[in-house]
Design a protein around this nucleic acid. Structure first.
Lengths: 231, 231
DNA sequence: ATTGCCACGTGAAACATATCACAAGCTCCC
DNA sequence: GGGAGCTTGTGATATGTTTCACGTGGCAAT
């Protein structure tokens, strides 16, 4: 659709597109029909030039002098990201986090749905959460192949993660979103993204420390905090 | 500590340090005493040169011809990241995700602890999860100030996120880890990290689509998957 | 029509990050 | 002591990403 993939888009551009998409959806609900790169960038914490560049990787969707038509741009971004194809997903591990993922309503809203869930704990197998029946681990392969599932969410303990990953890959899964705090090894045709809470928290810890060291102190009502930080 | 901050470390370097840290901890548990950049990079999915460069932003912690002493390197990385200072954290929003965060044992293991939890739902207020009593939202400010809390985890619905953020900032919080799918606005002295499931899933959706388009097909037992993808 | 203004799309420049390749330093062994 | 073999730390280089700045096309009003 629409000619020219002018070079390859950086990872971060894709992630920003995701944010643009969400913002456009919200704007549409509010009845906004048109938006400029300037305005969209303000809403997503980006810059106007960045918004235009990110979109330019995939085509040209606006009108000069006017801006972007919200609905049309949303549709284009949706196609770029491949949302709305209703990718079915499998969830492995129905503990605290897994349950939260099953309940997360952001997925269905964006066209992704957890249609199968698996757990190794016999007490959880057979339970039903949000219309999904928890199956035992040994049914992973047949279920995933039968339902042509290509995306899986991995919410198992760190020690089990690599083993389960290999089962999933063998079953034909192409995309894996890993929540376990480990570095997974996957073959090159399998795509991997990770959500790692420790990394995020430790990153914040680092920047906190750094900003304190740089003496970005005096800020008004921070004296308590600063006392806590320095001694 | 130890002279020379040779330039500023990129964000990604910090995140990798986090992975090195975790890997070093695991190695230490296994009784490994020494490791080379080559080996460490293999365990973390990085490259040897990258490991050395990441560390070089903060000093020189190895011995040429030998490698790194696991325990000592772990300690250095710990200090760099500011782990182990026992930062107390507050959790806002004790729904499915919030409960999962309270139960997440990766935090205490890395020296971070959720010591306060808040929720707007009166049915949840007063309940105790993992030794933490859920308090009502209107106690956020006094509690956070009294306990000198500087980091907060935000697990509230998207619509409430910005409002709660402002309360937290007013209370003196310096770091915020946001799980709500919104772009938060914070003043410059407040650091923000986000975990956004939709963005991760949509990114995978994009690379999946891209890899299929590029015809990275023939892989063996993928015919089912491919049929699902193309038809 | 013409003028004035606006906002996109995009080459080119600036900046940031990752990789390469090698000198420096350590250990071991002869 | 000296040479062989290893691995770090780091200039130099290559690659990748963001920002700048402006040409282009489009709308509105006079």
């Amino acid at each position: 659709m629409s000619g020219s993939p002018r070079g390859k888009a950086p990872q971060m551009a894709i992630r920003r597109l995701s944010m643009y998409y969400r913002t456009l959806a919200a704007l549409r609900e509010q009845g906004v029909e048109s938006i400029s790169s300037e305005h969209l960038s303000a809403l997503t914490g980006s810059t106007a030039a960045q918004v235009r560049r990110d979109l330019a990787y995939f085509g040209s969707f606006g009108r000069r002098g006017v801006g972007y038509e919200v609905h049309s741009l949303q549709t284009h971004v949706q196609k770029i990201l491949g949302i709305g194809e209703g990718w079915p997903m499998a969830l492995i591990g129905v503990g605290n986090l897994g349950s939260a993922l099953l309940a997360y309503d952001g997925f269905p809203r964006q066209g992704f749905r957890i249609v199968e869930a698996f757990d190794s704990d016999p007490r959880r197998v057979g339970t039903v959460i949000r219309d999904v029946v928890v199956k035992p681990m040994d049914q992973i392969k047949e279920t995933i192949q039968a339902r042509h599932i290509v995306m899986a969410l991995l919410a198992v303990p760190a020690k089990a993660a690599q083993g389960v990953t290999e089962q999933l890959v063998a079953a034909g899964v192409r995309c894996l979103l890993n929540f376990a705090p480990v570095t997974l090894k996957v073959p090159p045709h399998v795509h991997l993204a990770s959500v790692d809470l420790s990394i995020e928290v430790e990153y914040l810890s680092y920047v906190l420390r750094e900003s304190v060291a740089e003496g970005q102190a005096a800020e008004g009502a921070c004296s308590d905090v600063l006392r806590a930080l320095s001694g």
